[in-house]
Amino acid sequence: MLEGRLTHASTLKKIVEAVKDVISEANFDCNDSGITLQCMDSGHVALVLLQLNSDGFEDYRCDRNITLGINFAALTKVLKCAANDDSLTLKADDSGDRLNFVFESQKGDRVSEFDMKLMTIDAELLSIPDNDYDVTIKMSSAEFSRICKDLANFGETMNISADKESVRFGVEGDVSAASVVLRPNETIDEDEKIVSTSIMVKKETNVNLSMKFLKTFANSSLAGSVTLELQDDIPCLIKYVFPNDLGVLCFYLAPKGD
């Protein structure tokens, strides 16, 4: 059986919010080291890879490997009922046909419970090569979100090019063109945390990516910073690392090209 308790239900809420426009249903594979989800969009353009480590849970126990087939529309309905500072306890027995959610307020004076029917999802897993990318950019997730939102109005393809000094996000539309150039820096955000832009380049890179997907994957609520890994003609990796060793949410996006 699986039993996992997250201190903040909002963690799962934000993850589901971030992926529900890309995938409609997916398997959560649970074992004693944590929970993994791998799923592509229906067009095979983007892939979501979620890894939640058992250590990041307040309590976690999974005696046997279990696959939970989840419909995201149903999951969204359940998670909408959680207040942001509620804790969340997930429970499933070995049959894997239902998933139980318990939300508890911080003071313990309100407990709500939901039971969700699971489905059998016939999903093929892909093997993702462990690529050593030519370019690694780490930046504020709010900045990445702003760039994608601003530039999305100008065209359907984002060109990202990076050299040792800067990274350029550019769009060529039918009637206008737009670009944003970022250089390495270090600033202090409103929570007095250091938010830096770092650019590591082994080889100058130039990639074209779908604006629609980038806009979906640019999400400032998941983590304070985002890492972009790029290489010519290789799927781009957009990675959010959760605090307290809870895990990562990765988006892989296939490039555009001739």
Partner: peptide, 13 residues
Amino acid sequence: MKQKSLLNFFGKK
């Protein structure tokens, strides 16, 4: 510009 598929890059397990 043509959108490529992830299946061109990642093999099935």
